[in-house]
Computed example of a mutant assay.
Amino acid sequence: MFKKITKTKYPPSSPILVWDGECKFCKWWKTRWELRTKNDLSFKTYQEVAAQFPDIPEKEFKKASRLIEIDGCVYSGSDSAYRSLYIAGDDKWHIWYAKEGWFQKISDLGYNHIAKNRNFYYKATIVLFGKDPEKPAFYWMYYLLLFMFIFLFLIL
């Protein structure tokens, strides 16, 4: 499980989401997140910026994304994604995460599972949405319709 780091003594001049630049899954979803958050925060790989945050161990950057704000607050894992949406104006996810223990637990377990299985989830992302994160194709709808058709065929 990733460690939740709540503060750094080295705050950036603008909010920054730090992610793993060597992870294809991370890159695909980082691109989607950039489109959703517009220019409200910057996205940097931990390989680029880890040295700027010496109080955050590099091994922790490898385990989970980190959103670091100008006041030094750090949001980790699933909450880094929720907080980035909060900055972009969609506050419900971060508020749920902060207030609802069950939502926090489910989010963290899900995030941790995906983080440990990034290659599988990258392949699943490509199958469900295609290779271009800027123009995702919603193939999953076709799979769902096919599954429903087969299910109905089998029970009738």
Rank of each mutant, 00 (worst) to 15 (best):
W29Q: 08
W33E: 12
N39L: 05
I5L: 15
R66S: 12
F153E: 00
I106V: 11
W96L: 12
R83M: 09
P57S: 15
Y111W: 06
Y111T: 07
A124Y: 03
K62L: 14
M141K: 14
Y75I: 04
D79V: 03
P57G: 15
K63Q: 14
N39Y: 03
Y46D: 01
A51G: 08
Y139D: 04
D55P: 04
F53V: 01
P54D: 08
D55L: 12
W33G: 05
R66M: 15
I106T: 04
K116W: 07
K62Q: 15
R32L: 09
I5F: 13
K135P: 03
H113I: 15
Y122V: 05
K27L: 08
Y111G: 07
A88Q: 06
P136S: 08
I5P: 11
K92C: 11
N39A: 10
C23K: 01
S65F: 10
L156F: 13
Q47H: 10
K131N: 09
K135E: 12
I87H: 00
T125H: 04
K135G: 08
C26I: 06
N117I: 08
P12S: 12
Y86P: 00
F25W: 02
K99Y: 04
I126A: 05
L109R: 11
Y97Q: 00
S42A: 10
Y82P: 00
T8Y: 12
I70T: 15
I114H: 01
I106E: 00
K123Q: 14
M148F: 04
A137F: 07
K105G: 01
L85H: 12
F120P: 02
L128K: 02
L146H: 09
W28H: 14
C26T: 10
F53C: 02
L109K: 15
A98K: 13
S42G: 08
K7V: 13
K30Y: 11
F25R: 00
F103E: 00
T45S: 15
V127G: 01
A137C: 05
I114G: 01
P136A: 07
P12D: 11
T31W: 00
A137R: 11
K131D: 06
M141C: 04
T45I: 09
K4G: 00
C23M: 08
E34M: 15
K99I: 05
Y10N: 14
L85A: 11
W96H: 06
S80D: 13
V49Y: 03
N117L: 06
Y139M: 12
D91R: 05
C23F: 07
E34T: 11
D108F: 01
D79F: 05
Y86G: 00
F53M: 03
S78K: 02
G77R: 02
F138Y: 13
I95E: 04
S84T: 10
D40K: 10
E69T: 13
F149L: 14
D132Q: 02
L146T: 14
P136Y: 07
V18F: 03
E22I: 02
S84E: 09
I126R: 10
F61T: 04
E22S: 10
Y111P: 06
T125E: 08
Q52D: 10
S76I: 12
V74M: 08
W29N: 08
M141V: 15
E22D: 12
E58M: 07
V49S: 09
F147N: 09
H94Q: 09
C26A: 07
I106H: 01
A115L: 10
F149E: 05
A64P: 05
I95R: 03
M141G: 03
G21D: 04
K62Y: 11
P54Y: 10
Y75L: 03
